[in-house]
Design a protein around this nucleic acid. Sequence first.
RNA 1: GCGCCCGUAGCUCAGUCGGACAGAGCAUCGGAUUUCUAAUCCGGCGGUCGCAGGUUCGAAUCCUGCCGGGCGCGCCA
Length: 573
Amino acid sequence: MNILEHSLSDWARQRFRAVLPEGDFDGVKLDVVPTADEQFGDYQCNAAMAVAKRVRLPPREVAQRLLADGALPDGVARAEIAGPGFINFHLDDAALARRLEAMQADPRIGVPTPGEGRTVILDYSSPNIAKPMHIGHIRSTVIGNALDRLHRYLGYRVIADNHLGDWGTQFGILILGYRRFLDADALAADPIAELERLYVKSYERSKEDEAWLNEARAELVKLQQGDAENLALWRRFVELSLGEFEKIYRRLDVRFDLHRGESFYNAQLPGVIERLRALGLAEESEGALVVKLDEENLPLCIVRKSDGGFNYTTTDLATVISRAEEFAPDAVIYVTDERQQLHFKQFFAVARRMGISTRLVHVWFGLMRLPEGTFSTRQGNVIKLERLLDEAEARALAIVKESSPGMDDAQQREVARAVGIGAVKYADLSQNPQSLVTFTWDKALALDGNSAPYLQYAHARIASVRDKYAEQFPGRDFRDAPIVLTEPVEKRLARRLVRFPGVVDRAAHAYKPNMLCEYLFDLAQIYSTFYQTVPFLKAEDDVRESRVRLCDLTARVLRQGLALLGIETPERI
RNA sequence: GCGCCCGUAGCUCAGUCGGACAGAGCAUCGGAUUUCUAAUCCGGCGGUCGCAGGUUCGAAUCCUGCCGGGCGCGCCA
């Protein structure tokens, strides 16, 4: 199935060219988009004003030519020119109904697969070994996962890779701490908490004790040289950490295809340097090896430290080279916080100079802060992800027990889990990824208003309607009667429903899951009004079927839309 | 000092990379439940879109300057 806005836009583009064959439309947006305000119609084209300038004609004249001879796109009942030269399209209700029926018959509810044959690598979450996941990790994880699901749904082959921070200088400090301060019981009880304690204690010591720092460095060198004992310790740290991360990922229903940490590329780092040298890109400077990026207007980029060690850029280069060779992706998408913007600009610039033509995208998001400022392990004001999820489920459970006292205990817990986790994810996904985020419990755990539970509730109500329909009208199938749009709110609902495929497409390609959230909330609001004001089970034959069909389609869009955000939709709430 | 990002209603945020009188949620005030799940719906209150210029038929959106905040600027990731 095609996307409605796309076919309308295609029509407009063709019309402009046909009507003004001499026109130069380079760089002019000829698209048709949903109207900002329903009173103007359903879709609008604003291109006449821009085109008018190019062809030196009055804007309304251009618009009139476009609509000359009553030309209209398929599915449009009428078009009119308004204001300075807006072209407003009004959909034909019968054609709209047929379109909804086609969506309903389609398992994919009208969403095409433009990503067919393309591969995308998504690099997200990427926590550091031996540290707990805290609320700062949730954005990369939840946004990255939503982009993963969106791209997969659009037909892309997605390779989700958790690029763990499992290598680097911190391991010298940790190994030393482990050797001197280990509390075996604590490690057994809560591995990451103990590893973190060991790290922090050893780190503090290294700040004031030169000898300690040197010892830590020595441990690091041993590890890097392949010392059997340190390597075994390192493996243990990785295993313990992954086990803990996996618990969180299971709760969040996040799955990776690969867990290739920085260590995976360790052996390839010298090769990267050689290649940079061979290409004449790298040069010595103050003992380090650097790539100058004057042409790109960027600060120079260090690819090998003066002590001979490698850094983040080197690892990222090795990683992208390896990925390009192994998977031949069309794009690699990195989801990290805003602080890494410069790093990625530099890294992308160097990669391009090395001849890597793969599209590289940095999707950055605003750093999570606490009302009192930033948080860090050292300040000891981190809020662990596990605690956030526990709290979310607990708050949800309290509400479930209150509003659904008849439900059995196990089901209450199950609903509370889906609602609580959904609320946390939605809180993060529903705002522009790039805006600053200040964490507050009430915001992260909002259960009313524009929130996942509101959407889940709307969905559950429809599930109940479908059940009641089956109960009261056994042997009938609501799909047997055509969709007929009569009530105003019914028409509004129909017009929202057909937008779904376009929204999924846009949200994925703009890397903005919040666009999908906004749509789903809007849809659920209109549905709620529909539900409140129009009878359906009590309506007469055929009208009832038509309305139940709309309910069913709304439920499926909500369910699929939320699934693309990684949010569950229980049948009962 | 240089660079990136942000400043929209009392609070939290949208605003489809210039389009038609600026939208939600929360809070607050007032209504709706013998009827399909009230975690709902309907209505009221509330904004000189940080400030000042500029470009344009048209600016919250683009440009310049200023004010305020966040982040980053070789050898941490």
